[in-house]
Design a protein around this nucleic acid. Structure first.
Length: 291
DNA sequence: GGTAGACCTGGACGC
DNA sequence: GCGTCCAGGTCTACC
């Protein structure tokens, strides 16, 4: 079944898919140069569906496998709007970016929206799996979680949805450690899944939270496995752009960009983008680094 | 509040 | 093929 979603220009699906590495993680499937994508997802009624999304002019064309009913279409539309950051007003950021040559490309490419997964639970697990490992390790761990515990797409069992909190909560922690090879991250993911599945923690409310960023950050830091880098990364995914996710990559690029390759500390990364205020994280994220 | 060490895996490297 | 070293954030214990 095919339907369309209207988008407000400036808009570029390709720029969203290039916004960070999420497009390379299951259950996204897309090939470079990332102009369209497939996503497999378990809906609220537990039906597993696959979506193919591409842009045509100022509209997004969505194709689902098989027929969907009205409620399913509404859920898919709502989730795609979240995933593609469709409701984001970037005019103030563009005004700032227009004045900075290293950010001018953002305006030219209609960039600035950041790709998300359908649920904040999925993004939180994925963020935990980016910590203290290589990117190839992150991709492997996410793919393994999907392959082992995600529900398959009817008619194509090779395609699976990212497991729900309830499905992951049922998995033995040692299986997460040894079969999924999450290593020491296994208890973090297990505890998170159990808390969400039991209702102790409602991560999805963070999407529309009115808490000040600092208070929201405090709540994220209270989750086991989420430290300063991961919290800042999640805040960016929530549209809160005043913290910088400082990891070894950030230290490297800021060292090369602003300090002639001399090693820097987190405070130096903050200082480099301090002048962008509420857009500090966006300026760091979309900066046109020389190398 | 700041710091050291442990955690786990894959990849690079030397033999 | 095997062993060693290193990179990558967070947590905990300790000062």
């Amino acid at each position: 079944m095919e339907f369309t979603l209207d988008v407000q220009p400036p808009f570029s699906l390709q720029s969203i898919l290039h916004s960070h590495g999420w497009i390379q993680l299951a259950s996204f499937v897309s090939d470079a140069p990332y102009q369209e994508f497939n996503y497999t997802h378990q809906l609220n009624n537990n039906r597993v569906t696959a979506w193919h999304v591409r842009q045509e002019g100022s509209a997004l064309l969505v194709n689902t496998d098989g027929q969907i009913n009205g409620a399913e279409k509404a859920e898919i539309s709502e989730k795609l709007a979240w995933m593609l950051d469709l409701d984001r007003d970037l005019s103030n950021f563009y005004a700032v970016a227009h004045q900075e040559p290293k950010l001018a490309h953002v305006v030219d490419k209609a960039a600035g929206r950041i790709l998300r997964s359908a649920s904040f639970f999925e993004d939180t697990v994925k963020t935990i799996l980016t910590t203290n490992t290589s990117w190839s390790g992150t991709k492997r761990m996410v793919q393994t979680l999907v392959d082992l515990y995600g529900r398959p797409l009817p008619g194509d069992p090779a395609r699976r949805a990212f497991p729900t909190p309830e499905q992951l909560a049922e998995v033995d922690m040692e299986a997460l450690r040894l079969q999924a090879k999450l290593g020491y991250r296994a208890p973090y993911v297990s505890e998170l899944a159990r808390r969400v599945a039991s209702g102790d923690l409602d991560l999805e409310t963070y999407k529309s939270s009115t808490l000040p960023t600092q208070a929201l950050r405090k709540e994220l830091l209270a989750i086991k496995g989420i430290g300063t880098y991961a919290a800042a990364n999640l805040l960016m995914l929530l549209g809160r752009t005043d913290y910088i996710p400082i990891d070894s990559y950030a230290l490297k690029v800021v060292s090369e960009e602003f300090h002639d390759g001399v090693p820097v500390k987190p405070a130096d990364v903050e200082a480099a983008f301090e002048r962008f205020g509420e857009w500090k994280g966006m300026a760091f994220w979309f900066w046109d680094y020389a190398n």
